[in-house]
Nucleic acid binder design. Structure first.
Lengths: 234, 234
DNA sequence: ACCTGAACACCGTTCAAGT
DNA sequence: ACCTGAACACCGTTCAAGT
């Protein structure tokens, strides 16, 4: 595989370094080797240069990853009239954001460090707020509601990314044991003293069935929107 | 400060290494220098030993941090009858968990890597599930509800930890400019084309007032519980 | 048998020296 | 003026060699 990179036939004649090229290469690497494994040195290597050269275009690793995060969010298409009323559109928007982010390993971790102010992040926030207002959510609460939905997007994306990673690893090892993590939690609960943990024992079956992470994320989103409409949220 | 550690008068005669000692030292370091800055080497240094010695008691950094996370959760007191009905107790429990975790910098990041199966994490989950059932939440949905509440705890703790960090840094530099991040977001929105981002402009005031992170976390929690009671959650 | 010094294979970031 | 080789100050983890 290293021969492919070095082969002048498969590599473009020139590699005109630029901020966009660095960010694009980093996103491709996230998909290839995973978020945590993307280092400045590896990004540089992918661009056939030294790590020091990257600092001409990005100030540090965190800033680079923030750019990568926003580039990924460009993949999220805003829902249109065909997606239904404001609530259906909001659910579409959130679902797509989760899907896109989960498709780039743990990239959503970037958003945990603070509010993202990239163009695409703002584009999604704008649409989220617009739909919330259309749904009659109080102006005073829209910001908090968007925050809550953002946290849902990030958490669900990370959960789903982890699930996908496990899935892939399982495929690679061809193990028949479906969902190792599931069985692990099951046995942990089983070993707990029933007198102190009666509820965990009673609900053991439903606690360890984590397979349908999609259905769960959608259910959570419905709960949040219901809450926004029903109680203190309005 | 380094003289204090080396001074035999202030240091116990022996340092009997153990798993508990390693975990306790690591938690103290998280509070002192922050989650990201805690390395195996620094933990070893705090215990007057070499980094290799830690691997007798923990298998790697992730496992150590999982232990530290669970040790921190021991600080969370379960609500009692004095805290009110199931809902008031649930809100207390969640609020305390957020407070405790936020008090240890970004330690909550540990919980993003997967379901935590430490004793204290399970103790909190047990109580959460018990209260949800007492509140009449369907058995089939309790696991998902606890998951949603967990995500809220972790997200809110990280948000609050970041806010506390900014606060501390601000005090240290004695800067009068209150909440730099706030003003930054404000100016970003201001610079946005109003035609494309009308809602962000309209809600600019409420979007950039992030000060009361406590009130916001409590509002979000109310929304979630309302949603659990009102709609698809029941 | 248990512990650990020293080493291995990495990091992010800087900056003087080159073009 | 712009770019980058080489270096700096770190990492997590391993393992052979000591006690």
């Amino acid at each position: 595989m290293s021969t492919t990179r070095d082969n002048p036939r498969t590599r473009p004649a020139k590699a005109p370094l630029s901020r966009a090229a660095v960010v694009t290469a980093a996103l491709a690497l996230v998909d290839e080797i995973g978020f945590a494994a993307v280092t400045m040195r590896r990004v540089a290597q992918a661009l056939d240069t030294g790590p020091a050269s990257l600092y001409v275009y990005v100030s540090d690793r965190d800033e680079l990853m923030a750019q990568v995060y926003d580039l990924a969010l460009a993949e999220v298409e805003l829902p249109g009239p065909a997606d239904g009323d404001w609530r259906a559109r909001l659910e579409s928007l959130v679902g797509r954001a989760v899907g896109v982010l989960a498709g780039h390993d743990d990239l959503a971790m970037v958003a945990l460090t603070g509010v993202q102010t990239g163009t695409n992040a703002l584009r999604l926030t704008e649409e989220m707020l617009r739909l919330l207002r259309e749904g009659g959510i109080d102006d005073a609460h829209c910001a908090w509601a968007a925050d809550l939905l953002d946290q849902h997007v990030i958490s669900s994306a990370l959960e789903r990314a982890g699930w996908l990673r496990d899935q892939r690893r399982q495929e690679a090892t061809e193990q028949a044991m479906i969902l190792k993590a599931e069985r692990e939690l099951d046995s942990v609960i089983e070993a707990l003293p029933p007198a102190e943990f009666p509820t965990l024992h009673a609900l053991r079956g439903s606690l360890t069935t984590t397979g349908d992470s999609d259905a769960r994320a959608e259910w959570k989103l419905r709960v949040i929107i219901d809450g926004l409409l029903g109680g203190a949220g309005a």
